[in-house]
């Protein structure tokens, strides 16, 4: 079966010498969960954002769900990818002027031209899956951070995506709210969703991921199964990072 994500030698430079991405290659197969870890500024967010065209790159090639994009950043291809890929952000980025249900039905109705009633039914189903269907008529600022992030996951799921991208989904949450979001993500992984997750949550990476990719200064330092990465990382740089993470 064809992989969902294939990145070949992705390179992106901000200014001369400074590279956000340096020859990054990776593959994510269907139904697998890839966790991307690394210190801040290592290029994790940049990498995951290239997957749905929010970031451009200068060199290399990217194949998402069989659609190949290169440094020319073809808008039409990116639009096609975005309709099949969901994304969840660190800051939730819910639309504050729309109700919870409207946040979820907007894209299915506007992009996929589904009927409003049908989109609302599916939206309510997704909200109940996330355990927040009682909030459907509320507005984002009436919800807690954890609830907002679960709405954001439901919104990303509304387009029935074949790949979900998570960009530090729990970093902006209160510690006691982190687990409700991680549990929702676990559930999705169990249902066979293909996911790429940028996170610092070791327990999540250990339990859920199939592989951990460690990034530093835009370079892939290593890609290992989680049991190896967390107990016996191959590289000195990875071990240093994990030690630092433990201390915090």
């Amino acid at each position: 079966m064809e992989p969902i994500v294939v990145a070949k030698n992705l390179t992106k430079s901000y200014t001369k010498g400074l590279r956000a991405l340096d020859n990054v290659s990776l593959t994510v197969d269907q139904g697998k969960v890839l966790v991307v870890m690394g210190p801040s500024g290592s290029g994790k967010s940049t990498l995951i954002r290239t997957f749905n065209g929010l970031e451009t790159f200068d060199k290399g090639e990217l194949n998402i769900l069989g659609i190949t994009v290169d440094s020319t950043h073809d808008e039409r291809k990116i639009q096609k990818i975005r309709r099949r890929v969901g994304m969840v952000f660190q800051q939730f980025n819910l639309f504050p002027h729309l109700s919870i249900l409207e946040n979820i039905t907007l894209a299915p109705v506007q992009v996929q031209k589904r009927r409003q009633i049908e989109a609302e039914e599916h939206g309510m189903y997704l909200l109940s899956q996330m355990g927040i269907d009682s909030h459907a008529r509320k507005y984002p600022n009436q919800l807690s951070g954890g609830e907002q992030q679960r709405v954001a996951i439901a919104r990303a799921l509304a387009l029935k995506p074949e790949l979900l991208l998570f960009d530090e989904p729990t970093s902006a949450l209160d510690p006691e709210r982190i687990n409700e979001v991680l549990d929702a993500m676990r559930k999705l992984a169990e249902q066979g969703m293909t996911m790429v997750v940028v996170t610092h949550e070791i327990s999540f990476a250990k339990d859920v991921s199939d592989r951990v990719l460690f990034l530093d200064s835009g370079k892939v330092i290593e890609t290992s199964p989680p049991d190896i990465f967390f107990s016996n990382a191959r590289h000195e740089r990875s071990r240093k990072f994990l030690n630092q993470l433990d201390k915090n």
């Binding site: 065209g53 800051q91 980025n93 639309f95 907007l106 894209a107 992009v111």
Partner: peptide
């Protein structure tokens, strides 16, 4: 309007004008 709002609608496949 925060940048995140642009990223959110773009990642949902909405066109720039919409």
């Amino acid at each position: 309007v925060p940048r995140g709002q642009w990223e959110a609608f773009r990642s949902l496949g909405l066109s720039e004008s919409k």
